[in-house]
């Protein structure tokens, strides 16, 4: 076992999260894509912790799990608020702050 396959898995997962972030419009899918990207970074940190034989990477990954939990709370509350006001989950329909006139 070399660390390379862990790095490969982490980069593929990060890229899948990025693809989901740019190609979907559903707010929940966007939220889960962001979570996936964060989790892949914590996988890199845990791998580095084993490569360098120090626990610092694991501690960073642990703190990152906490950040993921905080982000989940705020993002889900935001989704509930947006759904209550607009009755849709389409990310393209939340364009109040957008400049110019678009009617799509």
């Amino acid at each position: 076992m070399t660390p390379n396959i862990f790095y490969l898995l982490a980069s593929i997962l990060f890229s899948i999260g990025l693809v989901g972030l740019v190609s979907r419009k559903n707010l929940f899918v966007l939220y889960m894509s962001i979570e996936l990207m964060l989790s892949s970074i914590s996988l890199v940190l845990a791998t580095l912790s084993k490569v360098l034989a120090q626990a610092d990477g694991s501690v960073m990954a642990l703190l990152m799990i906490g950040v993921i939990a905080a982000e989940a709370a705020v993002f889900l509350a935001m989704i509930i608020n947006l759904y209550r006001s607009h009755r849709t989950l389409n990310a393209d329909s939340f364009n109040k702050l957008r400049e110019g006139v678009y009617n799509d």
């Binding site: 076992m1 070399t2 660390p3 490569v51 360098l52």
Partner: peptide
């Protein structure tokens, strides 16, 4: 990522 160390330390 793979420019870093290539082996797991014991």
């Amino acid at each position: 990522l793979t420019t870093m160390d290539r082996h797991f330390s014991e």
